[in-house]
Design a protein around this nucleic acid. Structure first.
Lengths: 129, 129
DNA sequence: TATTATACTACCAATTTGGTAGGAATTACA
DNA sequence: TGTAATTCCTACCAAATTGGTAGTATAATA
């Protein structure tokens, strides 16, 4: 029942970019690394996930970096978590389970997943600022 | 963001005991192992957590086993999860963090923990039956 | 006293977590 | 046009966690 540093740092990155949204500048990972005291190399790896999910625009080379491609209120926390940690599935029991039709716990885990999805979907980046 | 098999199997065990609550008999792990297709040795290990948390009464030796020490409606799912998986703390950032006073994410994770605690605390073993 | 069952301790393989390292590709700017 | 800055990509790695197994000691009962 943990959020890993991937998800946690991803949110820190997105909050950082959101704070700089109005300037419309590209922000370097070096700057975020320095300000948030997170290793540049590790941030690169996490940023790759956010880039792949098209949550940010990027520019390579000198004076390049990253910026949001929408306004902060258009990002739900859910998409940030999903991009960095994968979909929310609190248990690993799948449809191959031979007890799936009689499993008493199933509804509980399903409700839990829904509750979590709702929790994160109801909040935007802007809400956090 | 996963519930491990420890928590999942712990719930299966408790549901099994709850179903047999009225008989007032001690139930062996062998029986649960056979019926739920979970290794006896692994169940023993998980059971040790539930025993330590005093969620069940035990009797060693022949015709021994385990049984609930309260009625199913007196067990919240929260105590079962806590006993098997430890307390619900979705992120590992603690009070040593030098950003703890200005951290924007902090409230989110705190809300998340509260939401989860509430989710599990509002349901009893009986609700699942 | 033989059998049945829990209790305890130690071990282990596979996966995930939380990174690091090095270099290639790309862009801006002097 | 060269150089510095920056993202992009691939590979690697140590430590912790997960999901178990194995063996033995201890207790209760018939």
């Amino acid at each position: 029942m943990k959020i890993s540093t991937r998800g946690r740092y991803a949110l820190i990155i997105m909050i950082y970019l959101a704070k700089n949204y109005n300037s419309n500048n590209f922000i370097t990972l070096k700057e975020i690394s320095d300000n948030e005291s997170i290793s540049l190399k590790y941030l690169e790896k996490i940023m790759a996930l956010l880039t792949k999910a098209k949550l940010v625009d990027t520019l390579r080379g000198a004076s390049g970096g990253y910026k949001l491609n929408r306004s902060p209120e258009e990002y739900t926390i859910l998409e940030i978590i999903k991009a960095s940690e994968g979909p929310i599935r609190t248990v690993d029991c799948d449809n191959n389970c031979d007890k799936k039709d009689t499993c008493i716990s199933k509804k509980l885990w399903c409700d839990l997943d829904n509750t979590l999805n709702e929790f994160f979907d109801n909040k935007t980046l802007k809400d956090l600022l």
